[in-house]
Design a protein around this nucleic acid. Structure first.
Lengths: 112, 112
DNA sequence: CCGAATCCTATACGATACTG
DNA sequence: CAGTATCGTATAGGATTCGG
C-alpha cells in the first residue's frame, strides 16, 4: 500500500525512467542526457538527476578540467530498477494494440 | 520512448494500481473499493474506474435490483498488468531500506 | 448504492535568463 | 559545459454538493 505509493513516486514521474534508460543506453554527460531524452528541460534534468543521486540509483563524477566534465552512471541499484521497469515496458509493447482497440470500442459505445 | 510515456500514463498515477490491486484482493463493488483504497475520493475512484474500463483492464456489471448493485472485475489483461507491476513492487520492497539509507547519507552530506 | 458536477488548490512542469 | 534562479501556467486531484 504505502510501498506502492513510494515506488510510483520514484518511477511514475515524467522523466526518471527516460533518464535512467538513456544512461543505460550510453549517455553519461549532462549534454548527452539532454539530447538522449528529447523534450526534457534543463530544470527537470537537473532535478531528476538530483533525485536519482539521492536515491543512490546513479553516481556523479566531476572532473576538474577545463572545460568542466561531469559523468553520470547507473549504480547496480539503478540497473536493477531499469531491468524491472523493462518488464513493464515489455508488457505495454505486447498489449498496446489490444488496449487501443479497447479504447476505440469504448469510445464508440460511449458516443452511441 | 513514447511507449514508456504511455505505460507511465496508465500506471504512474496515484490510484490506478491501488484500485487494480484492491480488485485482485477481493473487492468488487464501488463501496468495497472506497474502503479497499483508503484515501481515494469518489471523484478519483470514478475517474480511475472509467479509465480502466476504457483500457479494457476491468469489466463493469450492473444489476437491475433495488438497491442497485454494480460489480467490477479484472479482465485477464488487468490481471496481467498487475502481475507485471508486482515485480516492480517486489523490487521496491527488496531495496526500500537501501534507498532510505542512501537518502539519509545524501542528505547528511548535503547539509555538511 | 453508485455515481456526476462544480469549485478550488497544490504542485509539477516548461520557458527564460543568468552563473561558476 | 553544467548547471541555478525566477516566473508563469496547466493539470491532477481533494472537498463538497447534488442526482437516478
Amino acid at each position: 500500500m504505502e510501498i506502492i505509493r513510494q515506488v510510483l513516486e520514484r518511477t511514475g514521474d515524467k522523466w526518471t525512467i527516460l533518464v535512467v534508460a538513456s544512461l543505460q543506453d550510453g549517455a553519461s554527460r549532462y549534454t548527452d542526457l539532454q539530447r538522449g531524452v528529447p523534450g526534457i528541460s534543463q530544470r527537470m534534468l537537473t532535478l531528476t538527476l538530483r533525485q536519482l543521486l539521492r536515491d543512490g540509483l546513479i553516481t556523479r563524477t566531476a572532473y576538474a578540467e577545463v572545460p568542466p566534465r561531469v559523468e553520470y552512471a547507473l549504480t547496480s541499484l539503478g540497473t536493477s530498477l531499469l531491468d524491472t521497469m523493462l518488464a513493464l515496458i515489455d508488457w505495454a509493447g505486447t498489449h498496446h494494440e489490444e488496449i487501443q482497440q479497447n479504447q476505440a470500442q469504448f469510445d464508440a459505445a460511449s458516443s452511441a
